[in-house]
Every structure is written in C-alpha cells, then in structure tokens.
Design a protein around this nucleic acid. Structure first.
Lengths: 145, 145
DNA sequence: TACAATCTCTATGGATATAGTAGAGTATAT
DNA sequence: ATATACTCTACTATATCCATAGAGATTGTA
C-alpha cells in the first residue's frame, strides 16, 4: 500500500465534505482548507464522483457533497479506489501464482497477513468516526506498543 | 509501504541464505533459485552487505552468507532498509507537522495505526520463522477474517 | 605465475507513475 | 447575458523502478 498525494487529497476532501454534510462545498473552499492545487483537486473530485463517493452540482450555487452518509464510507474503500490495492504488492504483478521461485508461498502468506492487518484499521474506520475525532480531539486514536 | 522488486528479491535472498545457513551461496545459485536477474541481484546483495545483513567473500570459493543468525533478522528490518519506511507515507514527505491543512492530525493518527498494524506482522517474524514455515508447509500462516 | 571464478562499484537507459498545469467546454442561477 | 461553478482531455516535468553494461578487485588453484 502506498498513499499518494492524490489519495491523501481524496481522503481529506471526503472528510471535509463529511464535516459539511448537508451543504454544498465548492472546490475553492476545499482546495483552501486541505491545501491542494485546485486543478489537481478537480481531477480527484471527478474521480470521487465516478466512484460514487461524491455528487456535484454545476452553476452558480454548485459544488460538491457526499453521495452517501459519512458512516457509510470506509477509509479503505476510498484508498482502494484511488490508490489501488492495500497489500504491499510487488508480487501480484508478475502473477505470483506462476512464479518460478520456490519461496513464493511463504511470502504470499506474509503479504496476506499484512493486508489483513491494514484492512483491520482502514476498513473499520468510517468518515463518521473521523468526524467525531475531529470534533473531540481528546478521543483521538491512542496507542501503546 | 510498498515492497518493490528490489525488496522482494532482498527478502527472498535472505531467506535462501537462511535456509543454507552455515555455507556459502553464490549469486548464481541465488539468482537461479529466486528467479532474479543476476546483475540486479548483485546490487541488492551489495546493499544487504552494507546493511549488515549479509557477508561476502570473493574469489574461487566465494559467495554470500548471513551476517547474523536467521532468528536475529526481522522481516521489518530488511524491508525498511531496502524499501524505506513501513508507513503509508505521502504526508511525512511534506513535513506533515508543518502542514497547512486542518485535517493533518486525524490522518496522522490513522497512518500511525496502520504503521503499528504492519509492524505487528513484519517485526514479529524473523527469518528463522520463515525457515520453519518453509520446512513444514502445514504450519503456514492461516487466517480467517 | 597465470587464470578462472567470484564479488565490487559506477554509470547509463527505458518504462512507468506521480504531481501538477493548461485550456476549452458544459451547466445553472440571477 | 454573464458570472460562477463543475467537466473533460491533453500535456509536461520529475522521480522511481528495474534493470543492463562494463571495468575493477580479490582469491583459490593448476
């Protein structure tokens, strides 16, 4: 998994739309709040429309809004849609099942475990959770190893 | 995190050296068993030397061997050394702490959670574990979601 | 000593992805 | 009408990845 800037902007855009759920947000406001180049952000939003995450309206009072409730959008969905599979690939590319080398199965099981571990984070968090976290910063995600 | 081919080859090379712990392995044998271009693999092995994972010997009976015991090498160490940080970066690059946008803290905590989740897989597995798995394929990593 | 096998090191190149820019077009409220 | 907003396609610069090439250094052995 690698989160590109495109993915990063996409996630922040959706969080912003979630925080303003119910009203229209223009791309100017969005670009300003998430600090993204506006022309690049246009493409991201276009993708989010096509992915069924956002809805747009043109014209004078146009803008973007979420196409679903924040609680219905998982982080993982957006990440996968924008930046591709969550697993640390490199091997699936070459049709891993056809690999000549003899250690393929071992590492496949490792990457699968990693994939599950990542999924347990990004597929259990919705944007409704992030909204809560944003509003109550004390309830942020804490961790002790 | 993204595992490149370089990282993939590195991991498989070390596993091979672990399976042949105690004897020298030439780069030809290695390239053959892990199905990697030999000249590319040379660079990888060079890096593994510099990283303290492998030791080389030149000349007629030369080759490579592990610089530590298989149980002393975690997957995570190798991954980080070859392919960089485990977290799904994209944000650390721009000095995330200095980010202008207002959602930085939220996503930072998410990426940290992801990093911890990945770490719990790759930093608890050593190459001794992989050797065991290779020899007893039934004890492979199983998972039900 | 000569030489063959091995690792070492630096440079270079092609392909692809990433991040961003540009500009013309379409829809809509006033 | 027109200003404002979204839509769509094309383009470019840069970096990274995945090698490939070739000359050099070390070591065992005939």
């Amino acid at each position: 998994m690698k989160i590109t800037y495109k993915g990063d902007y996409a996630l922040k855009a959706i969080l912003d739309l979630a925080l303003h759920y119910g009203s229209m947000v223009t791309i100017h406001e969005l670009a300003d709040r998430i600090d993204a180049p506006i022309k690049f952000l246009e493409q991201v939003l276009l993708d989010l429309n096509r992915g069924g995450f956002a809805q747009s309206k043109r014209g004078k009072v146009g803008g973007y809004q979420l196409a679903k409730q924040p609680s219905q959008i998982k982080l993982g969905e957006v990440i996968r849609y924008i930046d591709g599979p969550i697993e640390p690939i490199a091997c699936t590319e070459r049709e891993y099942t056809q690999c000549r080398d003899i250690y393929r199965c071992i590492f496949r099981s490792v990457w699968q475990r990693v994939g599950v571990a990542i999924s347990e984070v990004v597929d259990t968090l919705t944007f409704a959770d992030l909204v809560k976290m944003q509003k109550k910063p004390k309830q942020s995600l804490h961790y002790e190893i």
